[in-house]
Design a protein around this nucleic acid. Sequence first.
RNA 1: GGGUCGGUGCCCGAGUGGUUAAUGGGGGCGGACUGUAAAUCCGCUGGCUCUGCCUACGUUGGUUCAAAUCCAACCCGGCCCA
Length: 423
Amino acid sequence: MTAVLSSLPPWLQRGLADLFPAAVAQEAGLDPDQTLAARLAEAEAAGRPLRVKLGIDPTGSDIHLGHSILFRKLRAFQDAGHTAVLIIGDFTARIGDPTGKSTTRVQLSAAEVEAHAETYLVQLGLGQDPGRALLDFHTPGRLEVRRNSEWLAGLNLPQVIELLGITTVGQMLAKEDFANRYGSGTPISLHEFLYPLLQGYDSVAVQADLELGGTDQKFNVAMGRDLQRHFGQRPQFGMLLPILPGLDGVQKMSKSLGNTVGLAEDPLSMYSKLEKVPDVVVDEYLTLLTDLDLAVLPANPRERQKLMALELTRARHGVAAAAAAQVDAAALVAGAAGAGAAAAEVPETSLVAVNFPAKAFYLLAAVGICASSSEARRQIQGGGVKLDGEKLVDPNQEFASAAELHGKVLQLGKKTFRRLLAG
RNA sequence: GGGUCGGUGCCCGAGUGGUUAAUGGGGGCGGACUGUAAAUCCGCUGGCUCUGCCUACGUUGGUUCAAAUCCAACCCGGCCCA
């Protein structure tokens, strides 16, 4: 594969899982509809940037590192002068992509979807410091943000029937997720069959030259090609990137599995999560999430791991914050109690909403460290809670006022910290 | 529409009238250990400012001193047949 790809630029090749129908001309063809190298050459000759599509469904409110693989590649295209067409799936989010799902997804309201879309754009860099933004929002012509309700909401029944006629039940059932669900007797709602078609229709609507997606998107991206052909357009290329393993190192990074690092997370939690990722995925993170050359990195696994955590934190929060996070993480985990904890930069929480006098277990819950006061009580009894490095043993210990807690660091386990502020 | 089986805590899955937040596993969280992690061992895993009080086994009613467990209707789903 490396040899075949050799005429594509390195920035484009890095971390690819799949590229279809073909990367460069193997034997006969220099057909720009069949090989990406030819399409790139053609575009360059014509002085026309490629339209690179990436669709995201605003179904949750946080973007995590797993998603950022795709955005990084999209950014690379931008930096090479191409046009990123970011599709906010505000319409499709309400159907729910059945990919990778074992059950029908709950449908979201239009308002929820829109709220998510806004936070997505901010996390991608809209209105943020361009130096740390994931996408280039500033250079003219490099980014097009579209919402697919723009063309999907207005489809009428004859048009929908036309779309449905393009494919068959057999083809749909060839899709792994559907096949599994059908095979195991898990319900599949009919509207879920519409999802791949609508995603494909997005490609038609924006006249995509190439669509980015995770490897699990192959079916949907290929569907886009079928639809484009049906509507008389040149079919897009499909560029698939690996699915990032989550912090557990086994399953894919996914919010529902709780193994994510969110782009919006503070430096300390980002760093401390990343520095304990299993060794086997460290190189994968480095390849997919950074531009570093793996060959020149330290061989010691622990060193490598820390460097990866540092680099990813830096990319998001800047050099100073990342370095501070590394120091703080070391101090806090080492349990260098008072000193370390006091010096550390940890997320701050106001105590204004807490009613005093406050018992310890209530405090934990009120401050948001524990999901419930009952859980807080258990955690304290389990010996996992510290205040300024000192273990709390009595869940009923009372604190009389916010003032006596001001500036102290409340800690649950090794990963969760809150600095308490009286105001 | 007919037949049939089934709906239990984050998930899977026991339980089939009676002290009980409800066996077990997974996952998660915490502790010990370690270079972080993994593995292993231990603890916790409904809510509530909690020595007690609430809410829980699809929904709603019913039988009973007592129901996740019995009955009825309804809702949802699988499979077979139309």
